[in-house]
Design a protein around this nucleic acid. Sequence first.
DNA 1: CACTAGACTTTGATTGGTCAAAGTTGTTAT
DNA 2: ATAACAACTTTGACCAATCAAAGTCTAGTG
Lengths: 263, 263
Amino acid sequence: MNVKTPPHPGSKKDVSRQGGCFHKYLFSKILRQTLSLVPSPSYPMPSVTVENYLKQIYLLQQGGELAPMGGLAVAVGVTPGTATSMVKTLADANLADYAPRAGVRLTEAGTRLALQVLRRHRLIELFLVQTLGLDWSEVHDEAEELEHAISDKVLEKIDALLGHPDTDPHGDPIPPSTGKPRQQKLTPLTECTPDMAGEVARVTDQAAEFLQFVDRQGLTPGAQFTVESQSPTADAITVRPHNREPVTLGTAAAMKIMVKVEE
Amino acid sequence: MNVKTPPHPGSKKDVSRQGGCFHKYLFSKILRQTLSLVPSPSYPMPSVTVENYLKQIYLLQQGGELAPMGGLAVAVGVTPGTATSMVKTLADANLADYAPRAGVRLTEAGTRLALQVLRRHRLIELFLVQTLGLDWSEVHDEAEELEHAISDKVLEKIDALLGHPDTDPHGDPIPPSTGKPRQQKLTPLTECTPDMAGEVARVTDQAAEFLQFVDRQGLTPGAQFTVESQSPTADAITVRPHNREPVTLGTAAAMKIMVKVEE
DNA sequence: CACTAGACTTTGATTGGTCAAAGTTGTTAT
DNA sequence: ATAACAACTTTGACCAATCAAAGTCTAGTG
């Protein structure tokens, strides 16, 4: 029994990602599970929209918690009502568990897909910086588009070309093609105390302006620094990157810089 | 007066290509033209669908002729009715001239967009072969997706990386970013006569199977050859690529191979 | 405990893109 | 001239994704 879902009977071309009819698939999947005819045939290509929701839920639920619907709506850029209805669809598809008025969490299948999207996104970012020479402040938006268009084959070529890297230009970990993502144990810069030395590991804000600032100050991932002063009451921390002028950051900014502390 | 079309009021993210609301744009464009407030502000991003229709119309109308609706429907993989209604939309947008029951032709604006799509497609193909090492038989389908996701900025980086090439791996000309595409004057292999020598310049069939065959026989673009025999009645032509075994092709296949004849 | 503000969901409508099937037209053959 | 056919268009429906606005919870606060 062939379970392929003809997207549009009579159409000649493989419309694939964009055109794929996810909802029709759901039907056949439920059928298959009910009848227990096929083990677990890996999901066909979800729509760009579904991929974006999955990715954002993944990013919002970090730590096993439920992602709040409001945050999700903002993250994917839709109204709350739209998010609700889409999340219900994801739940029907067994990609997410939805607790009305509480939030949403990815299932294992959903997590797998989200990690694939994230892997595509981050490999593309690194590729754009490393191979094509774009600035790290502009690659996030580019990757946002490309992550939905690139095939596994091309992605693995890029991965190989880059030497199977494990972080992107912002220090975000690139999930492996299979298996669990590595967990980094990093400290936010806000928790560093004077005289501590460390290395910038990750910048958790993709806004171009912030990234350009970080770059100008010499605090890109890999940069070594020493903490000069820190004061929660003054809401500020001053760090000196090696061979650079010291920089003073407010707590809000410092929180976005994750750091590996020297032992 | 700012003419930007907010895709979804209140949305934070730039939904850009996929989400862009082309029809709403049309409205504002008509407004602008009517009121003569803005000169001619270059079209905003058409949807993936519109891009595909424009590309296929361009490819079908080669020679100033009208592209037939049936052929267009097959080319974009939709039913004839769908093609009709989409072409009407393109005509309303001044991207195409539509003659009911006769066919469709791109306007200048439509042609400009189609050439951009084609440029993206062909540069991507070459990039995939040259930089990422994919086989020339598989890059067409990959590029079909990527051509709608890549920004001008990334495209021009790729163009530079490849040294501003002017043909893709199949010998198809890469349209320049502005201005008219070059016209090659090539001969189909079917029109070659015995003892003529020439060079394969272009293979006008993107089917993987055919491309693999052509590759195995040593008839990829750039290959030198001599015609051994030719007979329209036998519907066949035999050519010998330099340093290779001779190959006999039927007319249907030979027509797909375009050739530069030695003077 | 009763209210209220904010978070969330529901409802009803819209849009772009599509199909199936019925209707129309232009062309060719008899 | 007319019949038949293929190509095309029209019509009515559908689906995914969305929004606006009205409705409903729920967690606090007084």
